[in-house]
Each structure stands twice: as C-alpha cells, then as structure tokens.
C-alpha cells in the first residue's frame, strides 16, 4: 500500500492505510489521536468533527485519499495550549458532562466563530444543530459560544 502523507496539527504523518479509509479511523487507530470521537459513522452526530483547512468537517465522511495537502486540525491541535477562546469559554461555563461529544462540539463552535465572530442565537442554533449531545449540555454550549464571541470582541 502506498503511504499517504497527512498534515495533522502542523505535523506531517505518513500513514499506510487503504485509500478508502475514513479519516476518523486513521486519526484514532493509526495516528493515535483519540480525541476525535466515533459516534455514528454516517455524519449524523458530529462527534468526529475536525477542521479541514479551517472548515468544520465530519471525519467519518472524509476518505483519507481525498484530503491531499489540506491541513487537518483535531481537538488536540486546537486545544494544545488551552488558550483558545472556545476552550476557555467551555471551562468557564462548565459545559461538559460525560464529555464524549465535546471535542466535536468545540471544533464546530471554533469554526463557527472563525467565520462568524458574533453569531446570533439563530446562527448558533443552525451551526450547532448537527452535533448531538445526549447528556443535554445544549444550553451551556449556547452560553459558552456567546461568551467566547464576547471575549474576542
């Protein structure tokens, strides 16, 4: 199998995997970045959200062969120094309960704020609607995004 080079969190990673392997499993099982979570495998829940060139994407729906030179950012990259305003807002609002969906929620929220620094409640609701939280932290997610937006004013 030819090796594929991925650019993950500013580091190149050469991986030997079948080209039709979804990025999610390459991150988790091959590269060892388990912060990106498996939730549904159908792009329905958002637990595996990563950034591809800054855009929020579902890693379970991206074939590793389709990525090319695009830059991949995972939760480990975004949160490396815990200084990202979304990370800080998430802690300030004490958002997580079980925490399993939260890396995906945070990646989605960070992408939203990168494109829309001051989202309305409706924009928050629309952008975050693809990310399921079964513990029910939705009210806190809304508050944390509003807080992060206010801090970056």
């Amino acid at each position: 199998m030819p090796s594929i080079t991925l650019h993950i969190n500013d580091h190149p990673h050469a991986v030997d995997v079948a080209p039709d392997t979804p990025l999610l499993w390459v991150l988790r099982d091959t590269v060892g970045l388990t912060g990106t979570k498996y939730g549904c495998g159908m792009g329905l829940c958002g637990a595996c959200t990563v950034h591809l060139d800054g855009e929020a994407r579902r890693a379970c729906q991206i074939l590793v062969s389709s990525i090319g030179s695009a830059r991949i950012t995972t939760i480990e990259g975004l949160a490396a120094d815990r200084k990202h305003p979304v990370i800080r807002a998430w802690l300030a609002e004490q958002v997580p309960q079980c925490g399993y969906c939260q890396p995906g929620q945070i990646m989605q929220a960070a992408a939203l704020l990168a494109g829309t620094p001051h989202p309305t409640r409706q924009q928050i609701d629309e952008a975050m609607n693809g990310n399921i939280c079964r513990c029910g932290t939705y009210q806190r997610i809304r508050r944390a995004i509003a807080r992060a937006a206010a801090e970056t004013a």
Binding site: R28, G35, A79, V95
Partner: peptide, 20 residues
C-alpha cells in the same frame, strides 16, 4: 470547577473506546 473537565475539552480524556 469540576476536576474532570480540563481533560474533556482538550481531547486527552480517556473513554473506554480510547484505551490503547
């Protein structure tokens, strides 16, 4: 503040499925 939350916002929390 909850002690388990810092690891839950930076991807380092180890759930059962993350055991390696």
């Amino acid at each position: 503040p909850r002690l388990d939350l810092p690891a839950k916002v930076d991807g380092s929390a180890t759930f059962g499925i993350d055991v390696r």
